[in-house]
Structure formats: C-alpha cells, structure tokens
C-alpha cells in the first residue's frame, strides 16, 4: 500500500493541486477501467496520462484523433502480400499498455467504435485473426467539452465503456503560481521514478477484487442504483454493468485509501465520476446536481 501512496506522490509532483483527481485516476487503473477526461486543452490531461505511465512503468502511446482517421489507423492493418499470397498484420497504436486517445470526439463514429470495442474486449480482431492486447491495458481518452464544431460527441451507450469520467479544471491560484515558477513539465515527467512495474500493477488490481464488501454495503449500492432508476429526472437509470463498475471502483478506492473493506464513503467518493457520464437528464436538468442530490436523499443505512 505504500507503493500506492508513493505513486500518488510522484504523479502529484507534476500534476499540481489535483490530489482528488489523481486518486480517482489511480483508482480507475486499479479497477482495471478506462478513464475519460473531459477538459479544455492545456489543463494537464496529457501530463497526467504520461506521468501515470511513467510511475507504473507502462508502455505508453499517444494518438491524436482527427476526423480523417480510419479504424485501421488505430487497430492496425492486415496487409495483403502478393508474394506470399497472405495477409500480414501490422499492429496499430492500440497495442500498448497505456493509450492516450486525445480528443477522441474528433474521430468519426466508426473509428470511435473500433477503439471502444478494443477497449471493451481487450483484443483486436482483424480478418478473423484475434490478437490480444498487452496486459495491463488502459485507455485514457480526452474530450473537449466546449468546442463542439465538427466533433462527434460520444454517444451515451459508448460512454458506458469508460469506468470513470473526471475533469481536472483550472488549478488553484497558488498552484498555478507554482506551476509558472516550475520548469518544463515534459522534462519533469521524464524524470519521474517508476514505483511499481506493470506486473505489480496487475497484482494490485487482483487485490482490489479481495477488498471486502459487506451485505449492508451492497444493499446501499443497490439502493443508489435503484434511486437512479426510479428518478424520473433521468431519461434512464444506471445499468447493472454500471452497478458492477461502481462497486469495483469503490473497492479500488478503499484500497487506495489503505483499507481492506469498503465503506459507504468509498462509494460516495467514486459515485460522481462513475455515474454522471452514464446518465442523461431530461430537459434542463444538470446530471451532476441530480446525482449529487441522490447521495443526500438515499439512506446510507436501511430504514
């Protein structure tokens, strides 16, 4: 568990003043989930992804998505070799351990769904040949929420593939001052020490599954899910898959917090980032406000 604290400290050196988001990102990795970061450009999304890769000693690639990108540009190409009369596979950038998919909403839906399918299945099938992706495999996708012109906003059904969505936001003034005083961030990232290697990360994510959750806690998670389903301010409630994700994220959060059993606080901590992007409000409502209000109204202890 010390390793996790150390990792947080390391990343915290380059992503300043965002402990909460860092912890969530780490939680997401431990829970073996993909992360969606929704933010304006220049908020440190790339730095965060890169730093995470460094700290866990993961193979890292970054793909900038554009509208002319084809699925093959991500997944790879099966090239027909006239000499051997056979197709041979040229791996795309997706064959890595940590993929930063920058501005994913700029790609066409087809390209998006190719990536999302690979994320879900953790394997790529080209011409009937299935190739597994490396272990571990994380996608950190970023999306620009403001500039909608010429973008394909990810449909809700696809958003479900991301375990969490976070946004970093502007840094606090004193942090920004620190940032300005500091040197080149890229340099600093390169100087980060690896804390665990990728095998260590895999082991840790196995530990997540062993974090204990009492019946009472599961009951609480169920009540929360139920509340989204019975609240008509939402178009639809959370799916069972979202429920499993919520529980897994809560377990990982408990582990990051140094506990071997889950508390309702853990559920509440991951709740907004797990639930918000999967829900859409009917006219005029703010999803964030409604999900937050559910935490207030759903009893933690049964009554």
């Amino acid at each position: 568990m010390q390793a996790l604290d150390k990792a947080l400290a390391q990343v915290g050196r380059v992503v300043l003043g965002k402990e909460e988001q860092l912890k969530l990102a780490l939680t997401c990795m431990l829970a073996n989930g993909h992360l969606l970061i929704e933010d304006l450009p220049g908020m440190g999304k790339t730095t965060l992804a890169h730093a995470l890769a460094r700290v866990f000693k993961l193979e890292y690639r970054r793909v900038q998505f554009t509208s002319d990108m084809l699925p093959a540009d991500i997944l790879g190409v099966s090239v027909f070799d006239p000499n051997t009369q056979q197709f041979s596979l040229r791996e795309g950038p997706v064959f890595t351990q940590l993929l930063l998919a920058d501005e994913i909403n700029r790609a066409t839906p087809k390209t998006q769904s190719a990536l999302l399918e690979a994320m879900e299945e953790r394997q790529v099938t080209l011409d009937g040949v299935t190739r597994p992706l490396p272990q571990p495999f994380f996608v950190v996708a970023t999306q620009n929420p403001v500039d909608q012109a010429g973008t394909f906003v990810l449909p809700e059904s696809q958003l479900d593939r991301f375990l969490m969505r976070i946004s970093l936001g502007y840094p606090a003034p004193e942090v920004e001052l620190q940032l300005l005083a500091g040197g080149d961030l890229r340099e600093q990232v390169r100087e980060l020490q690896a804390v665990i290697n990728s095998e260590g990360l895999i082991k840790l994510s196995r530990v997540v599954g062993k974090v204990r959750a009492s019946h009472e806690l599961l009951d609480y998670v169920q009540r929360l899910l139920d509340a989204t389903r019975s609240d008509d301010r939402f178009v639809a409630g959370l799916s069972p898959r979202a429920g499993l994700g919520l529980l897994k994220a809560a377990r990982a959060w408990a582990l990051v917090s140094g506990r071997d059993y889950v508390l309702p606080e853990d559920v509440q901590a991951v709740w907004p980032s797990v639930a918000e992007h999967r829900l859409s409000a009917r006219q005029g409502g703010s999803v964030a406000a409604i999900t937050q209000s559910l935490l207030q109204s759903v009893p933690v202890i049964r009554r």
Partner: peptide, 25 residues
C-alpha cells in the same frame, strides 16, 4: 445495528438541525 444508527440520527435531528438521510456513520 440499523436501529442504533437511526436512533442516533433521529436524536441529533431532533436536538440540532435536521439531517439528511444519506449520511454515512
């Protein structure tokens, strides 16, 4: 256990400002 919690919750709500249901211990 559940009654224990709600008793305290109720007492605190009665004596002080009302509390929401979604409070962890």
């Amino acid at each position: 256990m559940e009654r224990e919690y709600w008793r305290l919750h109720q007492r605190a709500s009665e004596r002080g400002r009302p509390l929401v249901a979604g409070l962890t211990p």
